[in-house]
Amino acid sequence: MKFIIVAIAILVTMAMAIFRAAKGPTAFDRVLAANMFGTKTVLLIGVVGYIAGRPDFLDLALLYALLNFVGIIAMLRFIKIGHFGDGKPVDR
């Protein structure tokens, strides 16, 4: 029961983050919302593992945490630098 309540709360928060990512006026709002969504994905996978009675899902959650962090840093580097490493600025 408690796991289901927490899962619903996480899903609602993820919906809010998605809404902000779709609406956010700047690119940074979208990055922030994507980061938040990724963290909530980690939590949701863990909690779903407990709901289903299969706590092995925690390994997947750990992997998601790593991937999320690397992805956010890569995206921010790209926003800050403005090219993909070939020196040609991306047309925005």
């Binding site: 980061n35 706590p55 390994d59 750990l62 962090f69 956010i72 921010l76």
Partner: peptide, 30 residues
């Protein structure tokens, strides 16, 4: 499972400030 959860918690506690700082830094520079 507790050990795994502890690992996740430490990882989140270390990476969340880093990504927050990077985001705020990029936004200020923008």
């Amino acid at each position: 499972n507790t050990a795994k959860l502890l690992l996740m918690l430490f990882f989140l506690l270390f990476t969340s400030p880093v990504s927050s700082h990077a985001t705020a830094h990029a936004a200020l520079l923008a």
